[in-house]
Design a protein around this nucleic acid. Structure first.
Lengths: 224, 224
DNA sequence: CGCATAGTTCGTTCCTCATCGAAGCATTCT
DNA sequence: AGAATGCTTCGATGAGGAACGAACTATGCG
């Protein structure tokens, strides 16, 4: 009967399948319109609107009106982290290993996790960066190694303009069950991958598809 | 309409107030009986039993039968981490700053967070350990400093018998909004505090109450 | 100005699920 | 053995809330 913060309220917001699908879709990091989210969740527009209202009221979402469109996005990294934590538990307890369909396959290889890269490619990249001593891993944590600044500067990423978020953070990959790189550095790397057109976002999915030359370039820079 | 792991299923388990209260109570780290959890959640025994069945089926709880008692506990650190993540969001979005009652006050000072110490005391302790360079903090992450082994050996804690869990982890404190020390080291320190009888667990609460001499001893060892 | 598109609000229907009392097992105490 | 305690199962009740169609508001296009 004790009362801390109202955890049930937040959890029940995520606990509805339609809302969970919406939040999952927004884990892609890009804001989406109400119609897109309705389609994503498989419900009618009015229903979606109602759900979005509740998520807004619960503080999990932000909205930006542009003309007649309303773009909904996750309220912040803390919310994204919560979703990831829940996803991790769901993955761990639910051995629902049923169908690793084609789209699922692409998701396993590389996908967007809020603002950084996840999947096998991302895990391999982190492993390699640790091997090369560019990053240093202490158990579950990651920090910059001595050569980090020069290494990332060479590919146009500045690791020393530090905003409020940590530069590197470990994020547990739900498909590989090992850590990949999150934080501002992880976000910067994903930005570069997309900016260089090494890979493109799969439409309506978190999957990230590398082009053959893009994959080569990525491997040369991060996996060599 | 995409399908990853069934996040809604897990979230909806936490999304019921009665179940949320039970999980919250179990964040104290000690296993509780069905009756205790029923009282904790403010529901009848049959209702509690039903909830416990669902939490078990969802894989969030483990149970140990001892005679006619059944002790329920959290299924593991991953589940505890998820609860903390949800609590963090709930705390952040819910400015329900209403009544910091007496018990709440004690909770802010020191409480148990699954298996380690949280609250103002815990945050102060981590700060001091970082100041003394016993631990090193990189942004949100924590690792052992050079003097860590000898420092903790002197007070009877071995940091080098490493189990599967990380030795030190940062855990965001929902009351202070800054990190405290989790991981096996955090757990070992809480064990010592209770073993030395510097503090006792408040009955039916996560609060940890230091005795006056215990507080002195704690401050001498960890805050000096 | 109309017409089309994007979203929200309203009212209704329907179903899930939380709840409790009573009864049923299991274990321990005397 | 009988009684008491701890917990689960069963059945009935009731409320919250998810869903959609229809109507309403707002923005953009011709």
């Amino acid at each position: 009967m004790r009362e801390g913060p109202d955890i049930a309220r937040i959890a029940s917001l995520v606990g509805d399948p339609a809302r969970a699908n919406m939040l999952n879709a927004l884990m892609g990091g890009t804001a989406l319109t109400a119609s897109e989210l309705a389609h994503e969740a498989g419900v009618s527009l009015p229903t979606a609107s109602s759900h979005l209202g509740k998520l807004m009221e619960g503080g999990l979402l932000t909205v930006a009106s542009q003309g007649r469109h309303r773009y909904y996005g996750l309220a912040g990294p803390q919310v994204a982290g919560m979703i990831e934590a829940i996803t991790g538990v769901a993955e761990a307890v639910g051995p629902k290993r049923v169908r690793p369909g084609p789209r699922d396959g692409a998701m396993r290889v590389a996908r967007v996790c809020y603002d950084h890269l996840a999947g096998e490619q991302a895990v391999a990249m982190l492993d390699r960066l640790v091997d090369k001593n560019v990053l240093v891993r202490d158990e579950q944590e990651i920090r910059l190694g001595p050569s980090a600044a020069s290494h990332f500067a060479a590919i146009g990423i500045d690791v020393y303009t530090k905003p409020r978020r940590p530069v590197c953070r470990a994020c547990l990959d739900w498909s590989v069950r090992r850590s990949h790189l999150a934080g501002t550095l992880g976000a910067a790397i994903l930005d570069k991958i997309l900016a260089e057109k090494w890979a493109r976002r799969e439409k309506d999915s978190r999957a990230v598809i590398f082009s053959p030359p893009g994959k080569q370039a990525f491997e040369r820079v991060f996996l060599s």
